[in-house]
């Protein structure tokens, strides 16, 4: 069956969004997006091509019919915005278990690399001794500051800061409570635990 998205009269980026939604919903099959201006036509075609799919444009009067085919098993590429729904939970100041010094070095190099990475999590939650990473004297303060500047929300567990007597020494990010931690985890598309 052929699906039709009639995006005539809609302003950009609406035709692209309607096409994106239809492609996500239908799995496989054919889709026709109808638009009534060249900007919408070119933008929908660019979007379809960026997903590794083919688009054929047919002009009917002043409208453009964009024929799109999605065959079985073709994965849609992740839209950029959706990358941001990732939450990273760091529950220790050391990375991995084993030698303590090694754990410290690994965490330093991990956060240093993450700070330069192209795709970033939306949030980093610091729990238990993980909160020490964001406090005065931590060797990874610079990396966490870079991450924060790049738009990553950094939150440290208040109970944990209190337990380690570090409430006054937090240098990056905000203090959070268990309620916010729970809702951040519930909303997250993907949770990475350390």
């Amino acid at each position: 069956m052929e699906r039709i998205v009639d995006a005539r009269g809609l302003a950009c980026p609406q035709p692209l969004l309607s096409t994106k939604r239809a492609l996500e919903e239908m799995g496989e099959g054919s889709l026709i997006t109808i638009v009534d201006n060249e900007t919408a036509r070119d933008n929908v075609v660019k979007f379809v091509q960026s997903q590794g799919l083919r688009a054929e444009v047919e002009q009917k009067g002043s409208d453009y019919y964009i024929h799109i085919r999605r065959s079985e098993g073709t994965e849609l590429r992740r839209a950029i915005g959706s990358m941001s729904e990732e939450v990273m939970v760091i529950s220790s100041a050391l990375l991995g278990s084993g030698d303590e010094e090694l754990g410290r070095v690994l965490m330093q190099s991990f956060l240093g690399t993450l700070a330069q990475a192209e795709s970033l999590p939306k949030k980093i939650l610091l729990i238990n001794s993980g909160v020490k990473l964001a406090c005065e004297g931590s060797p990874v303060l610079d990396s966490l500051m870079t991450l924060e500047q790049r738009g990553v929300e950094i939150a440290a567990c208040g109970t944990c800061l209190d337990y380690y007597n570090l409430l006054e020494r937090l240098r990056v990010g905000s203090i959070t409570n268990m309620y916010s931690v729970v809702s951040a985890l519930a909303e997250a598309e993907k949770v990475i635990n350390f």
């Binding site: 950009c12 980026p13 692209l16 969004l17 839209a79 950029i80 915005g81 959706s82 990358m83 941001s84 970033l120 939306k122 790049r150 738009g151 990553v152």
Partner: peptide, 16 residues
Amino acid sequence: STAIKAGMAGPEAVQT
């Protein structure tokens, strides 16, 4: 700005 309207801009792009 167009990507913000579409909800498709990442936090880093928006912030910068």
